[in-house]
Design a protein around this nucleic acid. Structure first.
Lengths: 119, 119
DNA sequence: GAAGATGGTTTATCACGATAGACTCAAGAT
DNA sequence: ATCTTGAGTCTATCGTGATAAACCATCTTC
């Protein structure tokens, strides 16, 4: 398994940690019950799995992340472009924008981001 | 199930059809064996499933697509931006580009695509 | 009319992601 | 010494995507 690949449930779970770290494990159990409807054992099961995969860390009941949200996002964005768009960002953009219209201001923001990546 | 959601194996399968349609079903079995390592029954199982979901069509052993690659791509691109980037294309772009550098020419192409979507 | 092709269907197995029940164990509180 | 609470493990169930074995019907060809 690639290190950064998170399944849907795992991603939602990790999001709670990213939004609150460091977070006490019992508190995490509480939040998962509230936000995801999970039982305590579910939380611990998933937590342990992600710890074993080197994505999270649980030390003395203090849960933190080793892999950051940005890392996973970078992986996700690359994966989808790779899988469905032949690795081509232009193809992705074309598909995403499709018939949708954006404002001049939004376009400016996007162009800015692109500009910053030019060698 | 959303109409456009294809699982990994389904996507690869559909790709063979998109690349070759209309394609005779026996010929499709041959290609799936060659490209995906599938047995005949596997091909027919998946084919039937996608036909039932209104994505493909099999008439007198001639297989064609009802949903096009572009439709699925649009869905995929939107889904990932929704799921992992809060629906924000700028966030997606930032993550994708990351540390990567692109050429002036590539940037031009991207900006062109963006320009065409401005209201 | 037996022997292949062609074009399928039915039913099953297997892996694995998602979820949880039952249990343990140490540390305070009573 | 019991009771409770915090912290965590072990084992199991369930759904479902991925894959296939076995079987069937029709048509051609020898």
């Amino acid at each position: 398994m690639e290190k950064y690949k998170l399944f849907d449930a795992e991603y939602k779970f990790a999001s709670i940690i990213w939004d609150n770290e460091p977070i006490n494990s019992t508190e995490l159990v509480r939040r998962c019950a509230e936000k995801l409807g999970w039982k305590k054992s579910t939380t611990y099961t998933v937590l342990k799995k992600l710890c074993n995969r080197g994505i999270l860390q649980n030390q003395d009941a203090a849960v933190t992340s080793l892999i950051k949200r940005e890392d996973v996002q970078r992986y996700e964005s690359n994966a989808v472009v790779e899988k469905s768009f032949d690795g081509s960002l232009p193809k992705f953009l074309t598909a995403f924008l499709g018939e949708r219209k954006i404002t001049e201001q939004e376009a400016e923001e996007l162009k800015q981001i692109i500009e910053e990546s030019v060698k």
